[in-house]
Amino acid sequence: MPRFAFLIEYDGLPFHGWQRQAEGQPSVQAALESALARLDPDGPLVTGAGRTDTGVHATGQVAHADLARDWDPFRLGEALNWHLKPAPVAVLDVARVADDFHARFSAVERRYTFRLVCRRAPVTHDKGRVWQVLNPLDVPAMRAGAAHLVGRHDFTTFRSSICQAASPVKTLDEISITEHLLPSGAEIRFHLRARSFLHNQVRSIVGTLERVGAGAWPPERVAEALEAKNRAACGPVCPPQGLYLTGVRYPVDPFSGGFQ
C-alpha cells in the first residue's frame, strides 16, 4: 500500500487536541481520517508527528497514512481539502514517501512558537489564538531566564504529572524570544526547537518565563526550578491557545515547498 505524508495546518479551538478521542469528541486526527474514508474504502488510519493538546494550533504538523490507491499527490490534497470542509483544517502539501517513513519516529526536530500579547485593550482579531496579559514584560530578563534551559537537562519540573514519556531528560536546542510592537502594546513570541518535547513542557516553560518578565521571579530562579526536578517548583502553566506547532524536520524533506 502506498504511503503518503501530509503537511497540515489547523485551528485548534474546536478540537480536543490532535489525537482521536474514545468519547467521540472532535479531534484533528479524526477529521483527517473521516476525510480519507471518503476516498479510501479501507478507512486508513493517520499517524501524526506530534499530539497537540486541546486548543493548540499548528501551521506545520506532519502526518502519514497508507492508502489503497496510488494517488497523484496534488489531486489527493485537493480532494482532502474538499472533504475536510467546514473543519478549520487544511492540507498544505502531500508527498508520496517510502514505506519506512514515519511521521513521528522519523522526525529529527520539532519547532513550536508561543504567542503572548501584552496590552490593556482586549485582542479582537487574534482572540483564542494568543495568550493575553495586561502589563508589559521584561524581554531581556526572560531571555536570561530561558538561557538556563537550553541544552540537555532533566525537565521533570517542566513536565506534566500525566506525561507518559519514558524519561524526563530532553535536549532543548533553542529558545529565542522576539518582541513585535502592536498598537498600544506588544506581541512576544517564544520559539522553541528540540528533537522532541515532554507533555506540557512548552507551556510550562512559557508560563514560568512570564513570571520572570513580570518581575515576580529573578532570572536565576529558572535555573533553581530546573535543578529542583520537582513539578511544584514550576511556574504557572500558561493556557494553550497561544501555542503553535510550526514545523517538523526530517533527514530528507518530503515536501516540495520545504519548511520555513
Rank of each mutant, 00 (worst) to 15 (best):
M1I: 12
L7A: 09
I8V: 14
Y10E: 01
G12P: 00
L13E: 09
P14V: 03
F15K: 03
G17L: 11
W18N: 01
R20T: 10
G24R: 06
V28M: 04
Q29H: 04
Q29M: 07
A30P: 02
A31M: 13
L32D: 03
E33Y: 09
E33T: 07
S34R: 12
S34C: 10
A37H: 14
R38N: 13
L39Y: 05
D40C: 07
P41L: 11
L45K: 15
V46E: 01
A49E: 00
G50M: 07
R51S: 05
T52R: 01
T52Y: 01
V62R: 00
W71Q: 11
D72P: 09
R75V: 10
E78W: 13
L80V: 08
L80A: 05
N81L: 06
L84P: 06
P88S: 10
L92N: 09
D93R: 09
V94T: 12
R96M: 03
A98D: 15
A103I: 06
A103E: 01
R110C: 06
R111W: 07
R111E: 06
R111F: 07
F114G: 00
L116E: 04
R119K: 14
R119Q: 15
A121I: 13
P122I: 06
P122H: 12
V123S: 12
H125Q: 15
H125R: 15
K127C: 13
K127V: 12
R129N: 08
V130G: 00
W131G: 00
Q132W: 07
A141R: 15
R143E: 15
A144L: 09
R152D: 00
R152H: 09
T157R: 01
R159Q: 13
R159I: 03
C163T: 02
Q164N: 14
A166I: 07
P168Q: 07
K170Q: 13
H180I: 13
P183G: 08
S184P: 02
G185Y: 07
A186L: 08
E187N: 09
F190T: 04
L192I: 10
S196Q: 14
H199G: 05
N200G: 04
N200Q: 11
Q201D: 11
S204Q: 10
V206Q: 04
G207D: 04
L209W: 07
L209Q: 05
L209Y: 11
E210P: 00
A214D: 12
G215C: 06
G215H: 08
A216Y: 14
R221P: 04
V222K: 01
L226M: 04
A228P: 06
A233G: 05
A233D: 05
G235I: 05
V237C: 12
P251W: 03
P251N: 10
F255S: 01
G258L: 11
